[in-house]
């Protein structure tokens, strides 16, 4: 009978070489530290929305977040109106004032009258952080500004991408 070949018995422990992995993590750490955000306000750009680029580098401050995209209008995460052909739907516009957006005014007024939010600087000073699509015409923005101003939010901060 033929004898079976047996491997010599060795110790089962072995040392993993992690030097290259440590190198990789060091590079990754440096890259992530560079992109680390120090701003106290987190802005998540709306899906399919193209913000305009600007040379301004002012960090955003806590404010009421208003989003005006090609499809909808949102305050924080709540959709308040829909857009059609780069304009507001006629049902959302006050019949007596073509610049007045009814759902936007209602929502902003609700925020300004909220007892729990009344003392926050964003509401107190009437600050709005506006994320608007770059393709929108000024007439849409004017309506937003006009309504916001009427609702007691005169300070409008336009969110832009950094870079020329």
């Amino acid at each position: 009978m033929r004898r079976r070949f047996e491997l010599p018995k060795k110790s089962s422990t072995f040392a993993l070489n992690i030097t290259s992995m440590t190198d990789m993590f060091t590079i990754l750490l440096v890259f992530l530290l560079q992109t680390y955000s120090t701003s106290d306000v987190q802005i998540i750009p709306e899906k399919d929305m193209r913000l305009p680029a600007s040379s301004s580098s002012t960090n955003p401050v806590p404010s009421v977040k208003l989003v005006v995209s090609k499809e909808l209008v949102k305050i924080d995460e709540n959709k308040i109106a829909s857009m059609k052909d780069l304009n507001f739907e006629s049902k959302d516009i006050d019949p007596n004032d073509s610049n007045f957006i009814l759902p936007l005014f209602t929502e902003l007024e609700k925020l300004s009258k909220d007892e729990s939010l009344k003392e926050t600087p964003a509401i107190k000073e009437g600050r709005i952080l506006l994320q608007a699509d770059a393709a929108l015409p000024y007439s849409v923005l004017r309506k937003v500004m006009y309504t916001a101003s009427m609702a007691g939010f005169p300070q409008l901060k336009l969110v832009t991408l950094v870079g020329d």
Binding site: I43, P45, T58, N59, P60, L156
Partner: peptide, 10 residues
């Protein structure tokens, strides 16, 4: 994506 703001007075 780095974002900034332009301040406007209304």
């Amino acid at each position: 994506v780095q974002l900034a703001t332009i301040e406007t007075q209304l």
